[in-house]
Amino acid sequence: MDFLHLAEQRYTTKKYNPDQKIPEDRIRALKNILRLSPSSINSQPWRFVFVSDEAIKEELAKQSFFNEQKIKDASHLVVFTVVNDINKFEEQIEKHLQPGSVGYFKQFLKPLPEDQIKSWLSHQVYLSLGFFLGACASMGIDSTPMEGIQKEGYDSILKLDGYTTLFAVAIGYRDEDDANQPALKQKSRMDLEAVVQSL
């Protein structure tokens, strides 16, 4: 199956089948795919938390506004977090990155105000989201990316240390009656000419 077809068929799932769980070998594959996600200078300023425990999912669902039922019914919830301690991040890159990458950070990013550095770090995590959604589609796994969550509540429930929640993705298998699926509701996108320019 080519990627264009996957893009045409992939959609944001609104209703999951709570009785269908993702097999463990596929969860392992998704974990490794996230580990291999691209990031600027190979910075990898992230942690990904896979939640399948029903009690923890229930707690997180309560912190998720209109996404509550999706989280309860999905097989897993994946929480995308970003390092929020710049000193901790510097220690990490000193251990794991090539000297040129560390030098780039020190020369071009470290002199910036803290909020700009943290914004740059968050952008790297968003790169992994696109990678992850494409991977799920290629494996026949449905997904729902969600920013509509109470991040501080997530941080507290997950007892994050040195990291903070950015967003989460519910994953699983759609309910056959999910009204948002392309077979029942045509995808709505702007025309190609409106979003892509060729020079």
Rank of each mutant, 00 (worst) to 15 (best):
F108E: 00
F105N: 03
Q116K: 15
E94C: 07
M146I: 00
G140A: 12
P113H: 05
G148K: 08
I141A: 14
F89P: 00
E114C: 01
P111H: 12
L127H: 10
G100L: 14
A137Q: 11
K110G: 00
P145V: 02
S128C: 01
S101R: 09
K95A: 14
V102F: 10
T81W: 13
V79R: 00
C136N: 13
Y126V: 06
L127G: 01
F108N: 09
G140Y: 11
H96T: 15
K88C: 03
F132S: 06
I149F: 01
I141N: 01
Q107M: 12
E147V: 09
W120M: 08
E147W: 08
Q150A: 04
N87S: 10
P145K: 10
N87Q: 15
Q116D: 11
F105Q: 08
V82T: 14
P113E: 08
P113S: 09
F80R: 00
Y126E: 02
Q150I: 13
P145I: 05
F89V: 02
G140L: 12
A135C: 13
F89T: 08
C136E: 01
A135F: 09
I93V: 07
I93F: 04
K118R: 15
V78E: 03
Q107T: 15
V79G: 05
Y126C: 04
L97V: 00
S128G: 11
G140S: 11
Q107G: 11
D85E: 07
K95H: 04
D85I: 13
L133Q: 11
N87T: 12
S143T: 07
K88L: 05
S143Y: 03
L112Y: 11
I117Y: 03
L112K: 12
I149T: 07
D142T: 07
W120R: 09
Q116F: 13
G100N: 14
Q98F: 03
I117H: 01
K118L: 10
E94F: 08
V78Q: 02
I86A: 08
G134T: 04
P113W: 00
K95N: 07
G148F: 05
N87F: 10
H96W: 14
L127Y: 06
S119R: 15
I86C: 10
V102I: 14
L121K: 10
L129F: 02
S119Y: 15
K106A: 08
K110F: 07
M139A: 11
L112M: 13
Y104T: 07
A135T: 10
F80D: 07
K110Q: 14
M139F: 11
Q92T: 10
G134I: 06
I117S: 05
G103W: 09
K110T: 08
S128F: 03
V125L: 04
A137P: 04
K88W: 06
L133M: 07
